[in-house]
């Protein structure tokens, strides 16, 4: 039931912009709660990496007095990975194409994160 609701948020998110290629909701300790990822991607590894990145980001933000972490962004040759908190115990990961308009992706991700935190 909850997974269905989370999945529907993800499919809305993926549908919101052609630039969003995949997304997933991950528990703070790195387990996938719901995911719409390409088939060749291992959910467990993505989950663990997102949790590790976000946790390191949080520590870095705090050590360098940037306050509470809002998001971690990774940019590669082929596009972006955006990780943000969806409530305290979950992480929303969005994978976007390199042409993506970041402002729009941020906005969509923020909206989705809010709906997710309301469900959890």
């Amino acid at each position: 039931m909850r997974e269905q609701m989370l999945k529907s948020i993800l499919s809305d998110l993926n549908g919101a912009s052609a630039d969003i290629e995949a997304s997933a909701i991950i528990s703070a300790d790195g387990l996938t709660m719901a995911a719409l990822l390409p088939q060749d991607v291992d959910e467990d590894r993505v989950g663990a990496m997102a949790a590790a990145m976000l946790s390191l980001g949080e520590r870095t933000a705090r050590e360098l007095t940037r306050g509470e972490l809002e998001q971690v962004m990774v940019k590669g040759e082929n596009g972006y990975i955006l990780m943000s908190h969806a409530g305290k115990d979950a992480v929303l990961t969005v994978i976007a194409r390199k042409e993506a308009k970041l402002g729009l992706i941020f906005l969509d991700a923020k909206r989705a994160a809010k709906s997710i935190s309301e469900i959890l």
Partner: peptide, 10 residues
């Protein structure tokens, strides 16, 4: 120490 703890769910 620097730690990176998260609430366990598994």
């Amino acid at each position: 120490p620097i730690t990176t703890d998260a609430a366990a769910s598994d």
